[in-house]
Design a protein around this nucleic acid. Sequence first.
DNA 1: TGAGATAATGAACGCGCGTACATAATGGAC
DNA 2: GTCCATTATGTACGCGCGTTCATTATCTCA
Lengths: 371, 371
Amino acid sequence: MDTAAKYNHVDEEAESIVTRKEVAELAGVSEATVSRVMSGVGPIKAETKQRVLEAAQSLNYHPNAIAQSFARRRSGNLGVVLPYVPKVHIFSTYYFSEVLSGIGEQVKEMGYDMLLMFRTPGVESDYMRIFRSQKVDACIILGATDTPGERAELRTMAEAGLPFGLVNQHFSGERFLEIDADHTEGSYSAVKHLIARGYRRIAFLNGSPQYSNSGDRLRGYVQAMREAGLLPGVEAHPADAEAIPPHWYYEGNYSRTSGYKAAAEMVRNRDRIDAVFASNDRMAIGLMQGLREHGIVPGRDIAIVGYDDSDAARVTDPPLTSVAVPFYEMGRLAAEKVLTRAAGGSGADEQEPPVSMKLDTKLVIRQSCER
Amino acid sequence: MDTAAKYNHVDEEAESIVTRKEVAELAGVSEATVSRVMSGVGPIKAETKQRVLEAAQSLNYHPNAIAQSFARRRSGNLGVVLPYVPKVHIFSTYYFSEVLSGIGEQVKEMGYDMLLMFRTPGVESDYMRIFRSQKVDACIILGATDTPGERAELRTMAEAGLPFGLVNQHFSGERFLEIDADHTEGSYSAVKHLIARGYRRIAFLNGSPQYSNSGDRLRGYVQAMREAGLLPGVEAHPADAEAIPPHWYYEGNYSRTSGYKAAAEMVRNRDRIDAVFASNDRMAIGLMQGLREHGIVPGRDIAIVGYDDSDAARVTDPPLTSVAVPFYEMGRLAAEKVLTRAAGGSGADEQEPPVSMKLDTKLVIRQSCER
DNA sequence: TGAGATAATGAACGCGCGTACATAATGGAC
DNA sequence: GTCCATTATGTACGCGCGTTCATTATCTCA
């Protein structure tokens, strides 16, 4: 006997969970019929349907989503794995918020919900558990890094045919579902623009190297500089990184603070720099603030180009030339691909292999490099 | 017979779902014992525990989260209801992204996941369904508006004792769990500051009136103006809104565009305005752009104060004086309160009534109102 | 050594739903 | 009116787990 049911009957009245059984009784049909009416499956006499719907309404019946998920072995959730970055308000970064907006849009359109999961810092094998636990039907991983551990784990998942996708990064040599942007091309065009504007002594402020797009941007920068004869050719220094003299290469972690700090270093090489290409707008903005404090006025004394074309680029002083990345669209696309894949059967066979896409970027010219 | 199982046996090897039954067999114990080991319930002999864990590991067993939720009738999810604003990249707005960051932090700490749910535009009775469907144990509602329909629905939920909370808004006369900021005080101090700086002809650019905080800010503005004798006293015009002459009152919808448009209107009353208090930074920024295009330089020709102290306020030209709101903390607090409430039993009885809190804001002075 | 207490395990059931299969009602052709 | 093909509904089971209750192994203290 359920004693809780006895003594809590006040609650029972207020919010007791109505099940299809009660609806069936009230409507004078079987539970199966209620089920069919609610999910619109199979042929139902119009009058029966009507009775059931009325009964459901009058009892305020709503199918238990968990039980449904359980029975049909589909959660109806798209998992989005976010890196756990304590202290950083992750949604407030342009990249994440745009990607999430795109995912959110697509997810809603396809009738799913969006389950956000923050990675646990120390734990390595996190991804597989997400699928094994069945809380999501598919998942999108943001901010994965290219470490041996993560790479191995992703590969395991790919081999198991699990529907997952990566946004804004790619793992060379793997066949993952990746929606990336062409950051090499984007960086190339940014640096080309500076060169076309007459700048020659162009420094590069890159972000954390564990992200694939940092490497991409490095490649674009070096390529443009080499083509202009501003860096030694491939023969001399095959490796891109080594081709850059230290007074032109700086590294931050994509935070504004790191850009601010880079300014102090650049000041020491002031006479060898007349332009900077920064790997994202936040660093560019920090850099501009830092330079200004050293009496170097961005746009006048030094040209700056950012990356991402975030909202902030529009309101800085001077407005920041930047490279627009279709993050929103990338999120949308990733969600679509991965959910389609999830719906198309769990097996890896007779599935087309996951595609890897690279969307175009676009240079947006403003006043930060117009002297 | 399951033909799929026959022909997909490659997948079956790779990702067949391992259940506790198989673990039990391998470990030579009952399913109940496996269950107890996995969830750490009840006394277990160390050796047995060891055997079970090894078996689980070797089979790569992970309890099915959906089944767990189903059995223990708890989803482990905190629902976050977002307004559906097509075209607007909702995560990219400072308010939402900060609140979400705060919720995310707390949710992780308390071992929950975060289920994002976008409201369906036309549908009214959305909230109740969320609970009835059992997909979430508690929920936080963002961007609710004070319409009769929503108010009624929220009241129904409150009466049912459902654990939900509102962030950054309050419904006067109701006893909901609300985590708000003191926007009246924040606005009051912003306008006071302008007055202290010597400005007298202070216009107010408010946001959409269906949000409670729009009303709050209106109140703060009027109060400060009245105290300085810049608006007629309460005797003359009891209602706050009516006390303001039209050339001082403008209304946008919190978007940058609406701020930009307001600039055009203000220009017509140019000679009667020397400062503007805007209800958020986005509008303030749009306003600044618009004014500039009319040859009015913000900070020099006209003083501007924004609201939210978003990242953008730091990088505008001139940097924007603004009112800082602890959105992150509000999100964290709301999640904590609502989850605690959810864990404390489902009944409405013997629960302390939901609290309504108002956190402090803080004026951050920059150069946009220092002539 | 034995009895009672306690620790450890197993057996069995139900959570609410989807659905395969069995069955009953209905319709149409003759 | 009969027979078969649909259509409409009911019956029964299982999804994987938590959990209660019954049972058995182990320990404690006399």
